[in-house]
Nucleic acid binder design. Structure first.
Lengths: 190, 190, 190, 190
DNA sequence: TATGAATGAGGATTCATTCAT
DNA sequence: AATGAATGAATCCTCATTCAT
């Protein structure tokens, strides 16, 4: 994760990964089918964790606005967990090869599993928004999918901003994000 | 641009690029120092265009809310220009090598120029927001840089959504974006 | 061919092949899909040549015994052509990977083409033998396929013997083979 | 033996060998210096067995033709022993690395021992033929080494034929070989 | 003695880049 | 100016071998 985050998938070598783990090149292939498998495994882990955490948090939560805030808080927590680097953030952005280019069946399945987890998160958010709209708690002039994308994008770039190098005009902290993002959600509340 | 967008920087070969341009592999290097140079040139072109278009649109525009809407409209126009594919979108996400890894001085300069253009856009947006806040037109409970990141992120993911494959829960069109995004901006107006 | 013959397929590296050809490693892959493709191409070339030469020689040949002698003479000519090394001989013995292990469709087709050419030679020999048996010129107490295998094996090992290192009890020359092999064929004539 | 026969030396892994033996990878190296050592050990075993069996059979055999038949019968027995696969046959064909490439003295010695056993078989056959020629039982128009190679090659390919896949024009059985091969020997009897 | 996790040398392959034509 | 054949650096992956347990 560290290596991919620091160098990007393509500039990271298997040797780099092994070295970071304090192991030898060959050992990486003892645990992963290929370099791509390492990436896919990480991605799958990320999305699964997101969904698991959300499931726990949302159990029993009735208020759609609170639920929405909780979901995006999960996202922030996970992205910020590693502390000093935007590990997940950079990994999530990596362009993956087309599904049909994947040689092994196992890898194809992994990529499908990732897509499934991503869809699950999407579905979670959309359900909350639609429920909120039906309860008259969330404004209905915005499509649920549009709102979901806006919130997701805003959330992402806010976090990325935390790790941007100086000189890019970012002066806020993790705390600022929390408050402002909740204000954003409230802007769509009724 | 098409090739990078379709395959991603690393999966695109110089041969692909040349073929798309109806030229031969060697010719690419007659006009570009390297493959990376092609990408950097494209990126620089993108950001320069963004800033140029903004400069034109904003000349004489007094209303900060209208100005903000115009700036993000520019972004959308450019990203959507190619019509049937998210060319710029994918290109913009490509992980670039670290500045210090770049061998040639020319490439380093180009990357710096890109950063300059990106900062210029950031400055443009921030100026509008701060002016709006001073004029009492934009709410001051949100930092200007936080608002800028939120708007930028929302804008990006909305557009990416347009190109996502079916099954990802995207049902909106380019028109939906326009209205919803302006509503988002208005949510921060006073 | 020289490299495969000298080192064997697996002990020969692509670099060796390139060096022998006075070219660079990468150039091998400009003309061949893979190292295996080099081998398959050579094998296909060999079997095609065998069949072509036979077709020419046998046109108009009525005598089955003369025809048989001609076919095996072709085999000898080709194996001995390179002069100072048993190029084809060693290449022909190389164990090939199973058809289904082959990654590319092109390689699979090449291997099938080789099998086709081999079958064609087998068919050529068998036809001659059967015709000879029907004409009462070749003894019928031996199955045509048995005789074909015996003649083929004898032919092969005779030639291999020519290239065996001293100390293996080989004292004959290429001329001795010709006479003795024809005597072998005559042993089955009526 | 089974593994080498099924996959070929280079496509067989030590893990395969261990698995077939119901042991673990590491155990192979407890009994053999290296993978090549396994192969050489098998080869040496084969040739030693051949010579031992021949020594027993030939003790007291006066008739050179009967002796020749016995020697090649031994060869057939051994090659066909495994029953359903051409184990020895494929192993015998494996291209070995050049003697001087062998790292360990032990391996070099083993390879020399194999060569010694091969020479011993050659000598056995040649002695029989020469004795037969001196006794006027075997025709003298063929050199003893030429006859030995012809018989050996014929014998080999006949047996290989038994294991060839269908579609290669092989229709005979192990019994057909016996009779036909003896007829071949008789063809050189006086 | 048996194991199997860890190792790293070895080699095939890719593809950006060069340069003679 | 355009080409594309040739190059070789870069790197993934395999698997024989080692060795601590």
């Amino acid at each position: 994760m560290k290596v991919f985050a620091a160098k990007g998938y393509h500039y990271a070598t298997v040797e780099d990964i092994a070295a970071e783990a304090g192991a030898a090149k060959g050992s990486v292939h003892a645990y992963f089918e290929s370099k791509l498998d390492v990436l896919l495994t990480l991605l799958l882990m990320f999305w699964k964790t997101i969904n698991t955490m959300n499931a726990e948090k949302l159990a029993g939560e009735q208020d759609p606005l609170a639920a929405l805030k909780a979901v995006f808080a999960t996202f922030r927590e996970l992205l910020l967990k590693s502390g000093d680097s935007l590990c997940w953030g950079r990994i999530l952005q990596e362009g993956l090869p087309q599904l049909h280019t994947l040689k092994s069946r196992d890898l194809r399945n992994k990529q499908l599993a990732i897509a499934r987890q991503q869809r699950r998160l999407v579905h979670t958010i959309d359900s909350i928004i639609r429920a909120g709209q039906q309860q008259g708690r969330i404004c209905t002039t915005v499509r649920h999918d549009v709102l979901r994308q806006m919130l997701g994008g805003a959330s992402q770039l806010l976090i990325y901003g935390l790790f941007m190098k100086s000189g890019t005009g970012i002066g806020y902290s993790a705390q600022d994000i929390q408050a402002s993002f909740n204000q954003l959600i409230d802007a769509f509340a009724l």
